[in-house]
Amino acid sequence: MTTQDRGLAALGLDGVPALQPLTYPGLPVTVPSLLTGAELLELRPGPGGGPGQWTVEGTGEGPRPSLDDVLAALGQTPVAGRRPVIAVGSNASPGQLSHKLTRRGIPGAVPMVPVRLRGLAVGCSAHIGRAGYVAAAPYGARTARTTLVVSWLDAAQLSAVDATELPNYRRVLLPGDAYGMTLPSGERLDGAYVYVSVRGVLADPVTGLPRPGGGDQAALLDALLDASPRLRELLGPDAASWVRRAAADPELRARGTLLFAEEGWVLPWTELPAA
């Protein structure tokens, strides 16, 4: 496949949930990749040496360069100088991540890799975000086994993503051994950051367990509206109305977030176990 085939638009990965809230969380990368702004180049994992030594596909004729070589050619920080960050929501979407970075004038060269983890599950943060959607949030679940995208961000990129997560999330470092973080090459990560909701996670009103996150946003919002006449009066009658009204009015977002708690839907799970 040529580099012309690797554009986000051609791959169907250029969607930006921040601009189209009902598409949240967007489409994630499914194979090890290097986001280069508007393109997504495939990485080929190899044993030993870590992701910086993996080779990059689609860069032209001749020997395949390493990821670190490509980053150097782009004038960007090598993998060892970056911080791995686990995405539980739209940060796994290359279109969303590119949007977050490029709108701040920051180069969007980011390695993005699906990583197997244990002990971490994905729920719904107990707040309404700036774009009007209810975003995903992680919580500890000892028996959980999942695959989540890890992005390696340089200092400027990390600062920019932090700014999009505050004040509703805080970034915490998870130990790799405790969470079994396994790369596609079979190597283990020493650790990675993740954004934890300071608001807690939404509970399913029937089971009392965390409501699963990261799925169909319209279905989630419609279910919440159906479960609460007060929420329906505030943001209804449907999901489209919810995101339109919430995105336009910070006070409505705050009132809706408060209603989550008043309905008894909030689990105050704002910490993740260290092991």
Rank of each mutant, 00 (worst) to 15 (best):
M1N: 14
T2S: 15
T2I: 11
R6V: 11
A10V: 12
A10Q: 10
G12K: 03
D14I: 02
G15Q: 13
V16L: 05
V16R: 04
A18Q: 04
P21A: 13
P21W: 01
L22R: 00
L22K: 01
Y24I: 09
P25I: 10
G26Y: 01
P28S: 14
V29W: 01
T30A: 14
L35R: 03
G37S: 10
E42I: 11
L43K: 04
P45L: 01
G48P: 02
G49P: 04
G52L: 01
Q53I: 00
Q53C: 11
Q53G: 14
E57K: 06
T59R: 15
P65H: 14
S66Q: 10
D68P: 00
D69H: 11
L71K: 07
A72I: 09
L74I: 08
L74E: 15
V79N: 13
A80L: 06
V85D: 11
S93M: 04
P94W: 06
P94T: 14
S98M: 07
H99C: 07
L101H: 02
R103L: 11
V113E: 08
V115K: 05
V115N: 06
R116H: 13
A121L: 05
G123Y: 00
C124A: 13
I128K: 11
G129I: 04
Y139F: 06
T147A: 13
V150A: 12
L153K: 12
A156C: 04
A160T: 03
A160W: 00
V161H: 08
D162M: 02
E165F: 01
L166V: 14
N168M: 10
R170E: 07
R170Y: 10
R171D: 05
R171W: 03
L173D: 15
L174A: 13
D177R: 15
T182S: 09
L183G: 06
P184W: 06
P184E: 04
S185W: 02
E187I: 02
L189A: 02
Y195H: 14
G200K: 01
L202D: 12
A203T: 09
T207V: 09
G208R: 02
L209S: 14
P210N: 03
P212M: 06
G213S: 08
G215W: 00
G215P: 02
A218K: 00
L220Y: 00
D222C: 05
L224Q: 13
L225S: 12
A227T: 11
S228R: 05
P229N: 11
R232S: 10
G236K: 03
A240K: 09
S241K: 03
V243D: 08
R244Q: 15
A247K: 10
A248I: 03
D249R: 04
P250H: 12
P250G: 10
R253W: 01
A254I: 07
G256T: 03
L258C: 10
F260R: 09
A261E: 13
E263F: 02
W265Q: 07
L267G: 09
E271D: 06
A275I: 12
